[in-house]
Computed example of a mutant assay.
Amino acid sequence: MKKETKIRLITSAVAIPLAILCFFNFWSTVALSAIAVGLAGYNYIQITLNGSRKFHRYFYIIAIPGLNVVFGFLVHNPAMIVLAYSFVMSLGFFLAIAFKDPNEIIERNIVYGTMGLWYLSFNLAFFILIYAQFDAVYSLSALGSAFVFDSAAYFVGSRWGKHKFIKRISAGKSIEGIIGGFVFLIIFFLIYDSVLYPFFGWRHFSWISIFVLSAVFSFFDTVGDITQSVFKRNRQLKNAGNILPGHGGFWDRIDGLLISVPMYYVTFVILNNFHILKA
Score class of each variant (00 low, 15 high):
residue 6 K to D: 06
residue 7 I to K: 12
residue 11 T to W: 09
residue 11 T to N: 08
residue 11 T to K: 10
residue 17 P to N: 10
residue 19 A to K: 03
residue 20 I to E: 03
residue 20 I to T: 06
residue 21 L to M: 14
residue 22 C to L: 13
residue 24 F to R: 14
residue 24 F to K: 13
residue 24 F to L: 11
residue 27 W to D: 12
residue 28 S to H: 08
residue 30 V to M: 01
residue 30 V to W: 04
residue 30 V to Q: 01
residue 36 A to D: 00
residue 38 G to W: 03
residue 41 G to F: 01
residue 44 Y to Q: 01
residue 45 I to Q: 05
residue 46 Q to C: 12
residue 49 L to A: 05
residue 49 L to H: 08
residue 51 G to Q: 08
residue 52 S to E: 15
residue 59 F to Q: 07
residue 60 Y to I: 06
residue 61 I to N: 04
residue 61 I to D: 02
residue 61 I to R: 04
residue 62 I to F: 15
residue 62 I to V: 15
residue 62 I to H: 02
residue 64 I to G: 00
residue 67 L to P: 02
residue 69 V to H: 02
residue 70 V to M: 13
residue 71 F to Q: 01
residue 74 L to P: 09
residue 75 V to L: 02
residue 75 V to T: 10
residue 83 L to F: 14
residue 84 A to P: 05
residue 85 Y to V: 05
residue 86 S to H: 09
residue 93 F to N: 07
residue 95 L to W: 12
residue 97 I to K: 07
residue 102 P to L: 05
residue 105 I to Q: 14
residue 105 I to P: 06
residue 107 E to V: 14
residue 112 Y to G: 02
residue 117 L to G: 05
residue 117 L to I: 07
residue 121 S to K: 01
residue 123 N to P: 00
residue 124 L to S: 00
residue 125 A to T: 11
residue 126 F to I: 04
residue 130 I to C: 03
residue 135 D to M: 06
residue 135 D to Q: 11
residue 137 V to Y: 11
residue 137 V to C: 03
residue 142 A to P: 05
residue 142 A to E: 06
residue 143 L to D: 07
residue 158 S to M: 15
residue 160 W to F: 15
residue 162 K to Q: 12
residue 162 K to F: 01
residue 163 H to I: 14
residue 164 K to G: 03
residue 164 K to P: 05
residue 164 K to V: 10
residue 165 F to W: 13
residue 165 F to P: 07
residue 167 K to C: 00
residue 169 I to M: 07
residue 170 S to I: 07
residue 176 E to G: 11
residue 176 E to R: 13
residue 180 G to T: 12
residue 182 F to P: 05
residue 182 F to L: 13
residue 182 F to V: 05
residue 182 F to S: 02
residue 186 I to T: 10
residue 186 I to C: 13
residue 187 I to R: 04
residue 187 I to N: 01
residue 188 F to C: 00
residue 191 I to H: 03
residue 194 S to A: 15
residue 194 S to V: 09
residue 197 Y to C: 06
residue 200 F to M: 12
residue 202 W to M: 13
residue 207 W to M: 13
residue 208 I to F: 13
residue 209 S to A: 14
residue 209 S to L: 10
residue 210 I to A: 08
residue 212 V to T: 12
residue 212 V to M: 08
residue 213 L to G: 08
residue 213 L to W: 09
residue 216 V to F: 06
residue 217 F to P: 08
residue 218 S to Q: 09
residue 219 F to E: 00
residue 222 T to L: 01
residue 224 G to M: 03
residue 227 T to P: 02
residue 227 T to S: 14
residue 233 R to Y: 12
residue 234 N to L: 14
residue 235 R to G: 07
residue 237 L to K: 12
residue 239 N to H: 15
residue 239 N to G: 06
residue 239 N to V: 06
residue 243 I to S: 13
residue 257 L to P: 00
residue 261 V to Q: 02
residue 262 P to C: 00
residue 262 P to Y: 00
residue 264 Y to C: 04
residue 264 Y to V: 04
residue 264 Y to K: 03
residue 265 Y to M: 04
residue 266 V to L: 15
residue 278 K to F: 08
residue 278 K to T: 15
residue 278 K to R: 13
residue 279 A to L: 09
